[in-house]
Structure formats: structure tokens, C-alpha cells
């Protein structure tokens, strides 16, 4: 803790040196070239063989589909496998009340992943504070290192990767839904009917890392965007957040970025009293929370409620049925 790579303290008022276009697509493009943070600064070493070996050892199931295919593997310059993490600063999250929009992380995720309605792979829960008022908790899949869902899957369709994420192979999933019963965070979603997706989603090449197009009778969830990070961009939700509340990082090199700053991940967690959801369950999530209720961006905890999530492309999803959770 003696050596400081970068200060982790957050300024009380939001910094706005770079004007951020609110349109998520534009912002995504901008970030793709300039906002790579730590990940862009480090040359990505391609070592398929190392990856293959690790996949065989760690990944459950003989040939966890799609994992061996990507060319750029997520390794550090020393050839070590990255350990993805997400650190969510609740002091900077107001559920996009100040934006007057639905939560932008969820919206960006839905636009990027074509997550079928009503799936919110990252969902903003509004939880009561002990002293009254509420806080907003953006909740992606917690990417447990001791994942209850992976343990119960009968066919190895959901599995842990060497990078510490949990993925689902929808080509193998039999739809028994025991993983949904097992997940203590309500972070798994089922395609009860023909999934409502826009026509362009059908053009995508399916892989467990990019769960598009969705298929009926299978389970989906947040995949932590590993293929995007390998390609040098931050996950959709990180890009979408107007308040830079979501940090994405790698424990292997101990860095995290919100697209604007680069910090030492462990230091940020420690100095801000980071915690994990339902830590007592022993699931060891890879998602950390820094306590707060949006106070850094001036939110009053008594100011409750947020805009409902929208699926902007839903009218283009022809012939599809939607359902409620």
C-alpha cells in the first residue's frame, strides 16, 4: 500500500474535462479509440496455446464451445491470464435521476447485447437505506469465483473461465433452470418464448462471450464483455454510465478504469471500504461495491424512484413475444 500508482479518491463534484456525448453509440466509438485506459496501454499478447491449456484445465466440460476460437486472448504482457473485476461506485450512482433517462448502463447493455426484453443483465435495484431513503445498486452478474450456478449445471453449459468470469453456452443449455434456482443474486434470465430481438441481432456470430442471437428455452446473463475488452473497449455498461460510476479492471495487473481515470484496483476497493453483495454466502463475487447513495453527484437519498428500463429496438423485433419477469 506504500506505492501509489494513481489516486483513487473521487472528487466531490463530477469532472467534465472531456465533453461526453450522451448518445451511447457515439460515446462508444470515441472510447474505442481514446478511452482504453490501462487495457489499451498494455499490448495484448496472443498466446492461444497457453489459453488452450488453461481452458482444458479450468473450464468445465470437454470443449466449452467458442472459447478456443478468439484470437486475441486476455493475457498481460507477461503472459499471465487477466482476472477481470468490476468496481461499482454507489456514491456516483443516482439511477440516472439527474439525466432524466432510464439507467444508461442498462440501456447501453441492452443496445449492445440485444438483451431480450425483459432481461436487464445489469439491473439497477433500489434498496432501502437503514436510516430511510434509498440507494441505487447497479447489479450485473456477480461473476462469482465460487459460483453456485456452475456447480449445479448438469451439462456444463455454464462454466467458469480462466479469466474468472462465468459464461453460458446457449448451444448446450437444456433449459432445466436449476442455475436460476441456485443463483443468489437473481441474475439469470430465461428465454421463455421466442426471444424478442431486433433483426440485426440475427446476423451476429454466436459465441458464449457474445450471446447473440438469443435462443428460446435457454438461460442468459451478463457475460462481463470479455470479447470487447480483448478488442480494447470497455464493457457497454461502463461506457454507458454518464457519471463514471463503474470501474472495470484486472486484478492480475491490479488496475481498473472507468474510461476516464486509471487506478490501482485493490487500493480503490480498500480505501473506499469496498464490499461485495451477500459476502457471507461465500460465493466470492468479482464485482465490488463502494458504499454510497449517489451523494458524489448530489443525490438526496430521499429522492426515490428511477425511470423504467426501455428496450429501444423492441418495435423492430418482429413476431416476438415479451414477458415480464
Amino acid at each position: 500500500m506504500s506505492k501509489r500508482v494513481e489516486t483513487a479518491e473521487s472528487p466531490p463534484e463530477p469532472r467534465r474535462e472531456i465533453p461526453i456525448p450522451l448518445d451511447a453509440v457515439d460515446r462508444r466509438t470515441v472510447l474505442k479509440y481514446i478511452g482504453l485506459g490501462a487495457l489499451g496501454a498494455v499490448p495484448l499478447v496472443a498466446s492461444t496455446q497457453l489459453m488452450d491449456g488453461l481452458v482444458k484445465d479450468v473450464v468445465t466440460g470437454p470443449e466449452a464451445a467458442g472459447l478456443a476460437a478468439p484470437t486475441g486472448d486476455a493475457t498481460t504482457k507477461f503472459g499471465r491470464v487477466r482476472q477481470w473485476t468490476m468496481i461499482i461506485d454507489l456514491a456516483k450512482c443516482d439511477g440516472c435521476q439527474s439525466q432524466g433517462t432510464p439507467p444508461q448502463c442498462t440501456t447501453a447493455c441492452i443496445e449492445g447485447h440485444f438483451a431480450p426484453q425483459p432481461m436487464q443483465w445489469i439491473e439497477i435495484y433500489e434498496a432501502e437505506l437503514s436510516g430511510g431513503g434509498t440507494q441505487f445498486i447497479p447489479t450485473p452478474c456477480q461473476q462469482c469465483e465460487n459460483p453456485p450456478c456452475v456447480k449445479v449445471c448438469p451439462v456444463g453449459a455454464t462454466f467458469s473461465t480462466p479469466e474468472g468470469t462465468v459464461l453460458i453456452d446457449q448451444d448446450r443449455c437444456i433449459g432445466c433452470r436449476i442455475c436460476m434456482a441456485a443463483c443468489p443474486y437473481d441474475r439469470r434470465f430465461f428465454n421463455w418464448g421466442k426471444p424478442p430481438i431486433p433483426p440485426e441481432a440475427a446476423l451476429a456470430d454466436y459465441s458464449p462471450e457474445q450471446q447473440t442471437p438469443a435462443s428460446r428455452g435457454t438461460v442468459m446473463k451478463c457475460d462481463f464483455c470479455p470479447e470487447m475488452v480483448r478488442g480494447g473497449t470497455l464493457p457497454f455498461c461502463v461506457q454507458g454510465c454518464p457519471n463514471d460510476a463503474i470501474w472495470y479492471g484486472d486484478f492480475e495487473e491490479d488496475v481498473a478504469t472507468n474510461g476516464r481515470q486509471i487506478v490501482k484496483a485493490t487500493q480503490l476497493i480498500s480505501e473506499r471500504n469496498g464490499y461485495r453483495l451477500k459476502e457471507h454466502l461465500g460465493t466470492q463475487p468479482r464485482v465490488y461495491y463502494l458504499p454510497g447513495h449517489g451523494e458524489d453527484i448530489g443525490r438526496d437519498p430521499e429522492n426515490e424512484g428511477r425511470m423504467p428500463t426501455e428496450w429501444p429496438w423492441i418495435e423492430r423485433a418482429e413476431g416476438a413475444v415479451t414477458w415480464t419477469r
Binding site: 456447480k151 449445479v152 451439462v155 448446450r172 443449455c173 437444456i174 432445466c176 436449476i178
Partner: peptide, 20 residues
Amino acid sequence: MGRPERIFNVFRYGRWQSPI
């Protein structure tokens, strides 16, 4: 089952660690 036609995955990829 959501995908009953994949029932044979249980024999093809079955994991003994799963309660199912």
C-alpha cells in the same frame, strides 16, 4: 425442460457434480 430435444446432452456432457 426448455430444450427437451437436447435431453441427450445430459449423457453427452453430463457432469457428476450436478444434483440433476
